[in-house]
Design a protein around this nucleic acid. Sequence first.
DNA 1: GGCAGCATATGATTGAAATCATATTCCAGA
DNA 2: TCTGGAATATGATTTCAATCATATGCTGCC
Lengths: 187, 187
Amino acid sequence: MLPEPYDLLPTTARQSQTIAAGDVLFRQGAQTRGLYVLKTGRVHLERVGPNGERLIIHRATSGTSFAEASVFSERYHCDAIVMDAGALVRIDKSAVLAGFANPDFARAYGRQAAQQVQAHRQIMEIVGIRRAEDRVMAGIVAGLLDGTVIDFAARLQLTHEATYRALRALVEAGRVNNPSRGTYRLA
Amino acid sequence: MLPEPYDLLPTTARQSQTIAAGDVLFRQGAQTRGLYVLKTGRVHLERVGPNGERLIIHRATSGTSFAEASVFSERYHCDAIVMDAGALVRIDKSAVLAGFANPDFARAYGRQAAQQVQAHRQIMEIVGIRRAEDRVMAGIVAGLLDGTVIDFAARLQLTHEATYRALRALVEAGRVNNPSRGTYRLA
DNA sequence: GGCAGCATATGATTGAAATCATATTCCAGA
DNA sequence: TCTGGAATATGATTTCAATCATATGCTGCC
């Protein structure tokens, strides 16, 4: 099943496909066809700067959508390159645009987008905290430590080593519990 | 005038007010009334963690909206505290929800939100670059250096000193031009 | 015109996270 | 059951951005 809000669009709007490493989904300047929901694999969005510098705009991971803004644009403004093989669903631009005439879809879209913006703002606030220990603490308070410590570290823009050290310091300070190897929660 | 997409809502949905430092716009747990567009001043959104830790969720600045997700929620999930005096417009939750029945508003909302998500993702990618010089270069390529260097540094989550040094290094490496004091562009 | 405040700019020092290295535990799968 | 890979964990060293300090140019305003 597709994640919200795209599950509300007609099934005819979806095109599933498998992707192989190195595949190019679209290129900067190409006519937009729609957005993508990545089921598995990894996709990088890259833009080439005026002087040829390659700049990674976004790394899409399993279960997330990307190129949403292309729905409102004539041309893609970056390249989409498959890093790891997987599968995805393309969702037609026209179906999304038409979907906004359906208040249920529109509200679901709005809710989803607003929550995503909120989450991004919060992560950016947390990433702005300089001290690794404070950053890790804030990350835990924000509930960002759900999967592995390594994933958590990546979200915090810290190395996993620095994150492990900060976690240990927090445990030693009694601010965090470490009931078992690899699990941490607020004290 | 209100920024997109809220300019499309009936004027009856807006309530302007001035705000003083220390004012509390809403508290965590309070019934949601709507979102806010900040005209001038500064507002912090803060959440209190389970053990009483104060965590800044977001710093709203002039010309931006905040608490958009409250429209889809019964209760505010954070406190909104005025840091610097200014003025804002509150936009009724019910008017926004009703607005989604208008495809023009819905699409404008969708476009605005999608672009914001895109911008956030890009900034997060850039902030993830470790070397100050590379980060500053990426920031310039992304067009983030429009205002002052100090603002630019804040967006990059760097100190302005580190940013000035990186800029000078880039100028010396011939990758960036510094036509006049305080102005930098790609070489 | 002079002063206050801010952005720009750079030097010196410090500190903390990155990096490099290594060991252990856990789990999946041959 | 053995093996390989990944996550967890921590030590040693290095690097580079933060911090502290200071100077200058620019602008607004009294």
